[in-house]
Design a protein around this nucleic acid. Structure first.
Lengths: 356, 356
DNA sequence: CCAACACACTAAAGCGCATTAGTCGTTGAC
DNA sequence: GTCAACGACTAATGCGCTTTAGTGTGTTGG
């Protein structure tokens, strides 16, 4: 009834039109030796004029790979569509991939088990040439799986050292940001402002970076002689708010809270406002990951900023390097920097810095 | 040096193991007649045991299609990674696609021209079987292009009637929400609260739904005898804030503002707070599209809520129906409903409803 | 008892491209 | 002047799967 054919041109069409064999066309179009410059040029023109594009399916079949990389997000749907992080990351990833004509196959699943299944399927189906893995976690099954399948992979985010070293000689690179250093800068600043009790509203406990941040916080606090509390959440606004309520209800509430994402920080701010606390004099707030959100609240939030799109772009570039046969490597990205806005300041009242 | 082979099993392996021909395997696995139940079962077991998965590349080559649908987002990078809308939409889309083993090829580009180029390339490369198109706009070149290419497509969002009717007998469906009705409900409510001057901070002027909302607002305002102002923006927090400042600086500022997305609404709220205006008594705020954002501010924002993930799911289902050879059709999704929170109320002072 | 016909299955071709193994006409070297 | 080497191409094969056209066997009916 519909679907007017609109047949795609194939190299065969080009061959006929240019009066050469299909192989000559293939050579010409792929820059292989074996055709004269004249013929090459002629073939190119015909291809252009016919609007020819290579069929990725055919290419993939004849061993070239599918010109596609995969990215799967394993997060419960509930905590999704919230953080700006992923869309920005993806947007950066694409920028780099598009330059090479690589497509991005994207999927959202509930958990890591499902993610592994997807990886396995994609591999078996020849769908992807490489993978981007996000949210590395403790006892992460993915690096081993992908190494076993021989799929070039870039893990985005700090992996635990054992996980990194355990990987065999696989095509597995890692791009990480120094969360510990970033946390240090936060704690140092809070200490300088006179805070003595700092809380950390952390993200999912299984994630490697959650642990790193927590550990860094404890170390830094010890160095500075601060008291710290930590609560883990699922990154949702609900749990961010709930954690804030709990922290503030404690007998000796913190005067500063560091949130592991922007959404929870904003939720925390709202809780403080509802309780009549003034930010920053009663409570200082720091958000991990800057975004529009942080800039739009009142007061705007101090945040650990990084260029997420650039992060994604670099990750994609690492993967491309791997795809080109380059060596696996571990690269450190820029450390998030503390952007101070109006949500942090000296604590006053409510038994703040006086205990020093 | 690396990349341990780990060859994927093919139907040939299955055939050998099961002691039948490759064609028999193909028939057995695809539920085609021509094999006995016993053989079919045996083949299935062997395939299972070998962990076989069909190669999409090979499938695509032999005419079955690539088992992939495409979605490209044409938005300047700046306004991206902001709204929760897209990630949620995508997450819903996937849920439906995954049930059918369809992959989602995703790309972000700067503008519609680039989007068309991507569509064309995907088509020529045999990469996708169908497409999801978002943000229909006035004089949209995409429906005609895709109809011409014969790619089954679902346009997500209200298309202008001419655009819809002009489409030839192509595999082009449309899923839309009644923004006009939603706008009516907002205006009705604001009128009932006593507002007389309402402003609309709209999104990109080229988008069809921006125009529809604007037109609906004007009609409704006329019906209710209200005065309306409208400003178009690029959806960014910066322009949302700027528009708000301009509106509030006017000689006869509005007492209620409807923002075309959550980000701008939050930015507007911050502007109001900075100017010392109290929300809602000095200014009522309504956000189009509900999200964590709206719930997390203080006061929380009244918003037009809809189930975006479900919207995406339905869109994907429409596309699957099309892929299955179903007829093109136009479907109306649920109308966004007004969720009243603390950011709307009766206007007081500042020359509010007294002029009635 | 043989033709007609199901039935279960195999052989072979084709999808679009890359690649390997030729083929053929020139050149260059000795 | 002859032979090897080279450049410019073409022919043929394979990738993994679907599909069409057989093939051979057993059953049925006249």
């Amino acid at each position: 009834m519909r679907r007017l054919p609109a047949r795609r041109p194939t190299i065969r069409d080009i061959a006929r039109r240019a009066g050469v064999s299909e192989s000559a066309v293939s050579f010409a179009l792929n820059g292989r030796p074996g055709v004269s410059e004249g013929t090459r040029e002629r073939v190119r023109r015909v291809a252009e004029q016919l609007g020819w594009q290579p069929s990725t399916a055919a290419r993939a079949l004849s061993g070239e790979g599918s010109a596609t990389v995969g990215l799967v997000l394993a997060r419960p749907a509930r905590t999704l569509g919230v953080e700006s992080f992923f869309l920005q990351l993806v947007s950066g990833v694409q920028e780099a991939l598009a330059l090479r004509g690589l497509g991005l196959l994207f999927q959202v699943v509930e958990d890591v088990t499902a993610e592994c299944a997807v990886h396995r399927r994609w591999w078996a189906e020849h769908r992807v040439d490489g993978l981007l893995v996000v949210d590395p976690r403790a006892d992460d099954p993915r690096p081993a799986l992908l190494a076993g399948l021989g799929l070039p992979t870039v893990v985005i985010g700090a992996m635990d050292d054992p996980a990194w070293e355990a990987r065999p000689d696989a095509a597995l690179s890692n791009l990480w940001a120094d969360d510990a250093a970033a946390m240090d800068s936060v704690v140092g600043r809070l200490d300088a402002l006179g805070h003595r009790r700092v809380a950390h509203v952390a993200g999912l406990g299984e994630l490697a970076h959650t642990r790193r941040r927590g550990a860094a916080l404890r170390r830094a606090a010890e160095r500075h002689g601060l008291h710290v509390t930590s609560v883990t959440t699922d990154y949702s606004d609900a749990q961010g708010a709930e954690a804030t309520r709990r922290l503030l209800a404690a007998p000796d509430p913190p005067t500063a809270v560091v949130y592991d994402n922007d959404v929870m920080a904003v939720a925390g701010l709202a809780v403080a406002a509802r309780r009549g606390l003034s930010v920053p004099s009663d409570l200082s707030i720091v958000a991990w990951d800057d975004s529009v959100l942080c800039r739009s609240t009142h007061p705007p939030l101090t945040a650990l900023a990084r260029d997420t799109a650039a992060f994604g772009r670099r990750a994609a570039e690492e993967l491309i390097a791997l795809l080109d046969g380059g060596p696996a490597r571990r690269t450190r990205d820029a450390t998030p920097r503390l952007v101070e806005r109006a949500s942090t300041g000296r604590p006053v009242g409510r038994g703040a810095a006086d205990s020093r």
